[in-house]
Write a protein that binds this DNA or RNA. Sequence first.
DNA 1: AATTTAGGTGACAACGTTGTCTGCTAGTTC
DNA 2: GAACTAGCAGACAACGTTGTCACCTAAATT
Lengths: 361, 361
Amino acid sequence: MQYSVFVMTTLSSPISPAQGPSGHRPRPTMREVAALAGVSLKTVSRVINREPGVSAALVIRVERAAAQLDFRPNLTAANLRRSGQRTATIGLVLEDVSNPFFASILRGVEEVAVQRGVAVFAASLDEDQSQEQQIVEAFSSRRVDGLILAPTALEQGYLANEMRSGLVMAFVDRAPRGVEGDVVVTDNRAATQNAVQQLIAHGHRRIAFVGGVSALPTAEDRYDGFLDAMMAAQVKVPANYVVRDIRTVEQAEISITGLLQGAQPPTALFTAQNLISMGAVRALRALGLEKEVAQIGFDDFELADVLNPGVSVVAQDPRRIGRLAAEALFARLADAARQATTTVVPSELITRGSGEIPPPL
Amino acid sequence: MQYSVFVMTTLSSPISPAQGPSGHRPRPTMREVAALAGVSLKTVSRVINREPGVSAALVIRVERAAAQLDFRPNLTAANLRRSGQRTATIGLVLEDVSNPFFASILRGVEEVAVQRGVAVFAASLDEDQSQEQQIVEAFSSRRVDGLILAPTALEQGYLANEMRSGLVMAFVDRAPRGVEGDVVVTDNRAATQNAVQQLIAHGHRRIAFVGGVSALPTAEDRYDGFLDAMMAAQVKVPANYVVRDIRTVEQAEISITGLLQGAQPPTALFTAQNLISMGAVRALRALGLEKEVAQIGFDDFELADVLNPGVSVVAQDPRRIGRLAAEALFARLADAARQATTTVVPSELITRGSGEIPPPL
DNA sequence: AATTTAGGTGACAACGTTGTCTGCTAGTTC
DNA sequence: GAACTAGCAGACAACGTTGTCACCTAAATT
């Protein structure tokens, strides 16, 4: 898509020029509210924080003054002094928020956070694992109370010092390496084993595994689950039936197309991640093989059920994973002595047709 | 899906108990770094901020001390004092981050922000417009430098005071009502008119419009574009061909199913939003009508091209919209006197088959 | 009537940092 | 060798708020 952009300049806002062209009046502080209400700064603080011990008359006067000036308490200043030093802020660091799986995790985290009046910083890393530590440090400098991380870097040892300094961590989707903490993951290995077992039960022996970045524990676990199932059934896995380190839909489509056009093509595919499953869907349909070659994917995706055949998947519940991670984080924030937990969220094999295609005779 | 959860408790971290069960040592401050390095607090500040005028020897001593203590500057404290009072933080308030359209906007915003060392708060409103103001105030209290909002509430007049106090705003996807500011939107009306014109050109006269929450300007504009095209072609629009205020895929599926099963069903659908388009895809396929009834949708969606027939859409570029909004915001932050701009990002009609189905003879 | 008490209210220091200004030392210039 | 730099380092106040404590008033107790 090649877009151009039209920009039209509208008249400057009817609001902003009230204080001169560039100017806005600086935000009112408690001091100013106090002056207007004719009370001391501290009394304003008490009213704003709903502390007891202020007469009803003054409460009203202060509230009126605050409303009149549009006073908005400066939380960053308050947190500086407030005991516990909580900022009511957490961070969430993911691979890519525009991937629906991660977007749902964010949504789940938000849901829990907003209830507690906690704001959520979001950041995407892409493939750039080197950014992981930088972003964690940026959030740490902003004194987030806690951080939820989907580890991308090979190793999270760098977090040890942060955690010792009071940064509370939880991990989603992938267990960290080099540190411990609350973890919420899917039963990757067992679920994959089960799914591949289904393919074998339907008679497949030539089953290919197409997976994501092999350095990630999820990809590793799913691959291990695949091997578990294949070994249990004593099915050999030729090297060319294993494709790993696929990062994008396009890469998946290309390499699966190659796989299917090669000699001795597989009769079934296990695609170990949502982007890869979509690539497979494309490749199969482009070759007209979607009713010949079986497919089961890891991660559900939109419209998987309206395709023909429907795409069978191992469905995770990412929103729930996000919620659980946030809850673990807040539990730990409330009780630092709490033991670290690992929560394994079971996934569900949803059969829609593509996984039940039998091999050719 | 009905899930249960397994929780296993692991041994407490090998790291955290270093300072006793619950305890972590509090974060080191510049004061402590200064003590360790044997210099004054201010010298540490200079080194951390790379200010000139510190001898090389001291720079090294301070850096070593900072590293040894794992010192992380407290940005919130720094911003309190720092001139301009910038927090290097912006907020993004959307309807729902787990909607791929909004997720891509967030991604675009992040992309621009991270380059500038700015962190992004994200929040979803759902249908709850009343939350909009609350969340804006929560972010304002945290002194975000700027805020990007996809307006959901009927009216954004409440922002006037915030903006006067220096909160810089940009708006995405929808123009605000009651305030002005930088706006980045799609050419909703013209693009819709063009798409509906295509349907008419293919011979359709019985064209239904299925749209989202009608109070939103986007929905309004798209509806107007639909009417533009219909009126230009002098085609009458019976009341039952207009369905509005659809919020979810399920609602869309149900009401479109009803529409298609009613008397005098439409021969073509214009579905004015991605969730609605997906609902239509479901309804059409459930009824086996996907090759009989034409469909053009607003917003592209994953796999629209591999469906059979492929779904023709008016494609927006949400990531770009996000980037442009963030750029407008930062431009305004750099120059408060800058005029407010409205950027209209053209969309593109992508024909994939569903929009080119002719009406029955 | 003197004393205690409770209920308000405010002065002041502190949170961790940066901006300003002053002071010291060593090197340069006359 | 005195006067002047430049370069470096630190003391101190300030940012906007909260925690602590002292104070004041009026009511309640003796």
